[in-house]
Design a protein around this nucleic acid. Structure first.
Length: 210
DNA sequence: TAGTAACC
DNA sequence: GCTA
């Protein structure tokens, strides 16, 4: 395990999760996907499909369709509430010193060829809490930039078990996935990469009313 | 608008 | 810079 990289509130923790922890988490997520099947979001206005498949767990889930990006309490296809956040993810969030409790866990499934263009996580009503990202399965070529669309970017490989915390200035940094290195991990049967992003959507002061 | 093209 |  290499040293933790830290800059402007960004913390990359290579190999934070042991192989046993990765397998346990993957098992939790497989159960989530059985209850809340992966769906393919589409772009606002154009309706162009994402290459990434998604689902969520926790009280709120991120979705996108022709009408826009938003958080909502129910699966867009089944109409059912998102499955509960696994205890293991709440424990991870707390272990990283994040405030309150995570309200949303977006599950992104990358098959071979899937990618995600550069974007900011800015659909939340609060940016006080960090975004916590967990990588499972095949290695991703992750690109990160600054807090505006233009400017220099750098490329970082994220392997299974790596955890990234976007806090402080880095909370609104542009980032994306250039590609996934097929066959680089044996964690997921059939290959691919699963990324979990834990987020706080509403300010902590609003939380008791949830 | 988390996609994509096209042009440099 | 386009998209509906």
């Amino acid at each position: 395990m290499a040293d933790t990289i830290e800059a402007a509130g960004l913390a990359i923790h290579p190999g934070l999760l042991s192989p046993a922890e990765q397998r346990a988490l993957l098992s939790d997520i497989a159960a989530v996907i059985r209850k809340a099947p992966l769906f393919r979001p589409t772009m606002p206005r154009t309706g162009k499909p994402f290459s990434v498949m998604m689902t969520n767990c926790g009280p709120l889930g991120w979705v996108s369709d022709k009408t826009g990006y938003r958080y909502q309490p129910r699966h867009p296809e089944t109409g059912k509430p998102w499955p509960p956040m696994p205890d293991r993810l709440v424990a991870l969030w707390r272990s990283l010193g994040a405030p309150a409790e995570p309200e949303a866990c977006l599950v992104n499934m990358y098959d071979e060829g899937a990618k995600l263009g550069m974007h900011q996580d800015s659909d939340e009503r609060t940016y006080d809490a960090p975004v916590v990202s967990v990588s499972l399965g095949d290695t991703a070529v992750f690109r990160m930039g600054g807090t505006t669309r233009r400017g220099p970017t750098r490329s970082v490989r994220l392997s299974s078990g790596d955890v990234v915390v976007f806090g402080g200035e880095s909370r609104l940094m542009y980032h994306g996935i250039d590609r996934v290195l097929s066959g680089s991990s044996r964690l997921i049967d059939g290959g691919g990469r699963i990324n979990l992003t834990l987020r706080r959507v509403t300010p902590w002061s609003d939380a008791p009313s949830l």
